[in-house]
């Protein structure tokens, strides 16, 4: 964990209510896909925890959805602005358990961490399939980016306006995979937990105080004892989850 000043290189809308922001600075503490950063914004007391989409050298890419006043303020930030950011938070995904054919499932604002994960797994020689779930066509983002990595990409939308009509679990049926990784809204995680045929890792979201394990604001119970989503998570294994 490191508190660093990150400078905005670009901050642009890539889908409905969804922004991609590239930041420059010391991000050496980001060591695994699935980790997050916690951003201090002027005028807001608590920081905003945002998942890491990609981290290369000193370039950090985050993708966030505008859901409230804080993310609205982020969306209005211009290139050149700086944000104090706690980096390298959370455990991230463990790629060593993936097997040869991992399946990555991202839902909405849970899509971004799948990008760095797909990149890492592909670099490790794995055959990666990705399912990206959205509500409707205008929310879809990063399909081409995942394809450019060499992943086999399936898009689902609830209203059927693009890709398979339905939920990510509809696209999972009949797929052959050795392990799964997912991030998204809790009902989606629960559905994947119930229908998946392999073990896997699921990334959870919770309202946080600090983001680094001090306040116990985001605790959950697991089969391996109490865990803090921010520090011991956000990634939990399928085996340890208690719903």
């Amino acid at each position: 964990m490191k508190d660093v000043n990150l400078k905005i290189v670009s901050n642009k809308k890539i889908a409905e209510n969804t922004y991609e922001c590239v930041l420059l600075g010391d991000i050496s503490d980001i060591t695994a896909p699935g980790q997050f950063v916690n951003i201090k914004l002027d005028g807001f007391y608590l920081r905003r925890p945002i998942s890491v989409c990609d981290a290369v050298g000193d370039r950090l890419t985050i993708i966030y959805k505008v859901v409230g006043d804080g993310t609205e303020k982020m969306a209005n930030a211009k290139a050149g602005c700086e944000w104090m950011t706690l980096t390298g938070l959370g455990n991230g995904y463990d790629t060593s358990l993936s097997g040869e054919r991992p399946l990555l499932i991202g839902g909405g604002a849970g899509v971004p961490p799948m990008y760095m994960l797909a990149k890492k797994l592909i670099s490790e020689g794995k055959s990666v399939s990705v399912i990206l779930g959205f509500n409707t066509a205008k929310e879809v983002f990063y399909k081409e980016e995942f394809e450019a990595l060499g992943a086999d990409v399936t898009v689902t939308t609830v209203d059927g306006s693009v890709g398979i009509k339905g939920f990510v679990t509809d696209a999972m049926r009949g797929l052959d995979y050795t392990y799964f990784y997912t991030c998204g809204p809790e009902p989606m995680l629960r559905a994947i937990y119930n229908s998946s045929e392999s073990s896997g890792q699921l990334s959870f979201e919770e309202r946080m105080g600090c983001g680094f394990g001090a306040c116990m604001g985001c605790s959950c119970k697991t089969k391996y004892g109490n865990k803090r989503i921010c520090r011991d998570g956000p990634v939990l294994t399928k085996e340890e989850i208690i719903w």
């Binding site: 807001f44 007391y45 608590l46 919770e206 309202r207 946080m208 105080g209 306040c215 116990m216 604001g217 985001c218 605790s219 959950c220 109490n226």
Partner: peptide, 18 residues
């Protein structure tokens, strides 16, 4: 959870002595 909420110049917590 949720145990945390943000306020103007502050926050609420209801951790409950974990």
């Amino acid at each position: 959870t949720p145990r945390i909420a943000e306020c103007a110049s502050g926050m609420l917590n209801a951790v409950g002595l974990q």
